[in-house]
Design a protein around this nucleic acid. Structure first.
Lengths: 147, 147
DNA sequence: CGGAGTTACTTGATGACATCAAACATCTGC
DNA sequence: GCAGATGTTTGATGTCATCAAGTAACTCCG
């Protein structure tokens, strides 16, 4: 109920605040990645690799050209953080999978996002739940227009 | 009050959701910028330029090397979106200011972040106020550790 | 004053990311 | 079984990122 008494923010104010949070989080992520010798792009790829993913699928997720992914995966593979596997059902496809080392390194990167962890720790359970619900509402719309 | 009845999300879940929102917003911003022939970095610079800002200040805000800023501003200046002005009080310093064209183009970029606008439009006034308050709580902590 | 040290900016070298166009192998549908 | 679509890589080019080094200007202190 504490919320309902506040003055409504301008849409522009809200937009700007959201941008600031996004920027801060990105910095946090990039810094943690750099700490492990990863560029932010490389870390982003590792973060996507829950299961095997074809090169093309990676390109789609990263919203970039497929030829770009070749180089990124090359560099990750050289460090043995990732492996290319032949797809059994389509010989054109190469599936990228994270190695144990790859999974471990991205886990640590997430752990070391101190600014973000610290910020979330300032919320109590109710606030966390509220934020989670609100962001969850935004998510589908924000991800829809991906093109 | 609707919020207080939800199950509390894991910190990891909340972290992941926050990351997803951040990523989506970045995509939206980059796409809008590309639509105007700007790289995301160039757009980011324009977005910072509310007033005159020395090169060094820009580098600090972007968290990158000062030498990098030289090239970025060179390219923006070639397109007349930005101008370098001598600082009256310190002849080493060059202040970067956005031209009218520069201000106009970044205004349009912000306007065209449709995914983000669309998502925020799904919230009513109370929800907006709540989200604004919660994100406002996170902001200082998230921006503190910048380095 | 005047030099030592700091700061602001640029240049040059190098590597990672990003695009596009083109080549190649493989799949799909008719 | 052939025409067209799809997945990946290569090569050319431009932008972004770093670092090291250089020049100019400021600051401080003896």
């Amino acid at each position: 109920m504490s919320a309902s008494t506040r003055p409504a923010p301008t849409k522009l104010e809200l937009l700007e605040l959201l941008a600031a949070i996004g920027t801060a989080q990105w910095r946090d992520f990039a810094a943690a990645a750099a700490h492990h010798g990863l560029t932010s792009t490389q870390a982003r790829v590792l973060a996507q690799l829950n299961g095997p993913l074809p090169m093309r699928g990676l390109a789609t997720l990263l919203v970039c050209d497929a030829s770009n992914v070749t180089g990124i995966v090359d560099r990750l593979e050289a460090r043995e953080l990732v492996r290319r596997e032949a797809d059994p059902s389509d010989r054109r496809v190469k599936n990228v999978v994270a190695t144990d080392a790859g999974r471990e390194i991205i886990r640590r990167v997430r752990e070391e996002m101190q600014a973000t962890h610290g910020a979330l720790d300032t919320l109590d359970e109710t606030e966390s739940a509220t934020l989670y619900a609100l962001l969850g509402r935004l998510r589908p719309t924000m991800e829809k227009d991906a093109r």
